[in-house]
């Protein structure tokens, strides 16, 4: 797996055979020899040794084969269907029409680009809201049967909960509610909105299910439950 630079020391393995000092020295020069990056003196040293050492000659052959095979590994093509096509139409066309790029163009383009991202949790969701990934994925079974929901879905759920809470707070003015509960609910709404903002900034990043439930959904649900449940005869903290 991927490791941070310098997190692992280089294994200093030598050749399996040909363990003379000369062979070990030549072994360290073979890759530079293959790349033709040795000085004339070093190249001459390697040439002389290779003429008399079958093991190092075979290692040279292997070094050449490794380099050749690496260069034959195919470049991978990024699927065009995953490209942000909205950016082309929005920013390009608008700018061409107006002859300049306005702040509004930039904003629209960014929004379009961000909108391109959320369905990328396709292998968990099994498709996309706009169908761009659905066809390909439907034919390719996912390696993981379950996982985090797409970011747009999580955001939509959280936004819905916030809306319900807001309705509970502001559309029921006649219900007496303890002021500290209101303050707490307001604080939790702010927290939820802050998380939504964060999610919006990182639209498309995988939002952990447990984080959403613990830090957004659960507090909001508790607040909704508390607010919608009338507290008879109490309008002040600690009141009778």
């Amino acid at each position: 797996m991927f490791e941070h630079p310098e997190s692992r020391s280089l294994p200093r393995r030598g050749p399996a055979r040909g363990t003379s000092d000369d062979c070990m020295r030549i072994d360290e020069l073979l890759e530079a020899f293959v790349d033709d990056e040795l000085s004339a003196a070093e190249r001459s040293l390697v040439d002389v040794h290779l003429a008399t050492c079958a093991h190092c000659a075979s290692q040279l052959s292997l070094a050449q084969r490794v380099r050749g095979s690496l260069r034959e590994l195919p470049a991978q093509a990024f699927p065009p269907s995953l490209l942000p096509t909205d950016v082309k139409t929005d920013a390009g066309d608008v700018r061409a029409r107006r002859g300049e790029r306005s702040r509004e163009d930039t904003r629209r383009s960014v929004v379009s680009l961000r909108g391109w991202r959320p369905w990328r949790s396709k292998r968990h969701a099994g498709g996309s809201p706009n169908g761009r990934r659905g066809g390909r994925l439907s034919g390719k079974p996912s390696g993981k049967p379950s996982g985090s929901p797409p970011a747009w879905a999580a955001t939509a759920i959280a936004a819905g909960l916030v809306a319900v809470l807001a309705a509970g707070l502001f559309l029921r003015p006649a219900t007496p509610v303890p002021s500290h509960d209101v303050a707490q609910a307001e604080a939790e709404v702010k927290l939820a909105l802050a998380y939504l903002g964060r999610i919006g900034e990182r639209t498309g990043s995988i939002v952990a299910q447990d984080v959403l439930e613990e830090r957004v959904a659960a507090p909001i649900a508790r607040s909704v439950q508390r607010v919608l449940k009338p507290t008879a005869g109490t309008t002040q903290d600690g009141g009778p």
Partner: peptide, 21 residues
Amino acid sequence: VKVYLHRARRMLRHALAEEEA
């Protein structure tokens, strides 16, 4: 970078030689 590249290819070569052996 040059030194690391040669070292990396040497590591690959040794790994493949070991596998072959």
